[in-house]
Amino acid sequence: MARVVFTPQLRRFTATPEVSTAAATLRAALEDAFAANPQLRGYVLDDQGHMRVNVVAFIDGRRCDDRVGLNDPLGPESTVHVLQALSGG
């Protein structure tokens, strides 16, 4: 099963469960993570359901290409890392 892992920055705001999923796309995998913690959705996706500009996902070390549809394919052994950019001074 594929794994979805969130970086520690998001843990400051909400629980970020590591999720094992049989999902075939990035969107479906994220939906499984949001089912575990619905509050996480607002930190990762905007109001249109697109990936927020300050968030990026890597699938097996490759940056995801589809930030709108999130239809990047996942393999059964894929690992997805979801990162949030940090800012401030």
Rank of each mutant, 00 (worst) to 15 (best):
F13L: 12
V82K: 04
V55D: 12
L70W: 03
D47K: 14
V53M: 07
G75F: 04
T79V: 15
R67H: 14
V5F: 07
R12C: 01
Y43R: 07
E31I: 02
D60E: 04
R11E: 08
P76Y: 02
T25N: 08
F34L: 04
D47H: 13
L30Y: 04
L10D: 00
A15R: 15
F6Y: 02
R52W: 01
Q48A: 15
T21W: 03
V4I: 14
F34W: 10
T14A: 09
D47L: 11
T7N: 10
P8D: 11
L45P: 11
R12E: 13
S87I: 00
A24V: 14
D60I: 02
A57E: 07
R12N: 11
T79P: 07
G42D: 02
D72K: 10
N37E: 15
A29E: 07
A23M: 03
L74R: 11
S87Q: 09
T79K: 12
E18R: 14
A24D: 13
L83R: 05
A85I: 02
V55Q: 12
V5I: 15
A15V: 13
G88C: 05
R3Y: 09
N71S: 15
M1W: 07
A23S: 13
V82R: 05
N71Q: 14
E31P: 00
R52S: 03
Q39F: 08
D66I: 06
R63C: 05
E18N: 13
L30M: 06
A23I: 03
T14M: 04
R3P: 01
S20V: 12
G88I: 02
I59C: 10
L30F: 05
V44I: 15
R63V: 12
P73H: 01
G61Q: 12
V56A: 14
E18T: 15
R3N: 09
V82M: 03
E31C: 01
P17Q: 06
H50I: 00
P73F: 00
H50A: 13
T16M: 03
T7E: 13
G75A: 14
L83W: 06
D60T: 03
